[in-house]
């Protein structure tokens, strides 16, 4: 039963993909490539790009920035999240501040971060950090607050020791929050870093996209968008695979 739905799911993706590409191809006939490149032109542009050193260098630079911003958000989000999860007062104090950080659009942060940190590359990392930090913060705080106290009491009475308690209670109880936080942040991280680089990038995927854009090379913009979308999806899939969690489908 489970296997068959998964199969159907995979086939569903395949059919949807073929359908979308077909519609895209048909609509593209009506437009010049500079407005809407066809799937074939986009594929050619992608192959052409992938043969250049700049393609891989840009990906590397962007990936490094993403990792830095992501890492900062992860560490500080988990630390502060655990703290406020345990101390209600700290949560009540910090929550409004983090909500404000989350409410400000990443684009606004980008413009401010350029002023504060310059355009050198720090600003992009900061924006990724600010976009992802609240997600870790709230997920971990929630995870800690939802820890099953009854099970922890039971473990205490039975003197299981902290290693076993962490492995058997903390990890599984917090796992849904972890998976959710990581899956949201890796996907969002790619989009945010590229957006930040488009606005102000000297280097990286977004900067190259912007150059393609002002040179009216829409096929390259399309190819890059495709690459970034794939990276986001693949990163999310890797997170879910590693953590053993299925993608939550709200319809099912």
């Amino acid at each position: 039963m489970k296997a068959s739905t998964t199969n159907l799911n995979k086939r569903g993706y395949l059919y949807t993909g073929i359908g979308l590409v077909t519609v895209w191809g048909i609509v593209a006939i009506a437009y010049p490539a500079v407005v809407l490149p066809s799937p074939y032109e986009t594929l050619l542009a992608l192959l052409e790009l992938s043969r250049t050193a700049q393609f891989w260098h840009s990906l590397g630079v962007t990936f490094w920035r993403l990792t830095a911003g992501f890492g900062l958000a992860l560490v500080s989000g988990v630390l502060l999240g655990s703290l406020v999860g345990h101390k209600l007062v700290a949560y009540q104090l910090l929550r409004p501040a983090v909500l404000v950080v989350q409410a400000v659009p990443p684009v606004s942060w980008m413009l401010l971060a350029i002023l504060w940190f310059g355009v050198g590359g720090g600003a992009q990392i900061v924006v990724v950090f600010l976009a992802l930090f609240p997600i870790f913060f709230f997920h971990i705080a929630q995870a800690v607050r939802q820890l099953p106290t009854d099970l922890l009491e039971m473990a205490k009475v039975y003197e299981t020791g902290w290693i076993k308690t962490i492995r058997a209670i903390y990890v599984p109880a917090m796992k849904p929050y972890w998976i959710s936080a990581l899956a949201i942040t890796v996907g969002m991280g790619w989009k945010t870093i590229v957006m930040a680089e488009v606005i102000s990038g000297q280097t990286g995927v977004g900067a190259v996209m912007n150059t393609s854009r002002i040179y009216l090379q829409t096929d390259e913009v399309m190819a890059w968008s495709f690459v970034v979308a794939c990276l986001g999806v693949v990163s999310e899939a890797i997170v879910r695979k590693l953590s053993g969690g299925e993608r939550h489908d709200p319809i099912r």
């Binding site: 009854d150 039971m154 039975y158 003197e159 299981t160 058997a168 599984p172």
Partner: peptide, 25 residues
Amino acid sequence: GRVGYVFQEPRLLPWFTVEENLMWL
């Protein structure tokens, strides 16, 4: 010495099987 406690509620780990719930202790 060891303490055993039968709570009013079963307090079993939901992610473990019946056997694992005992084994891990």
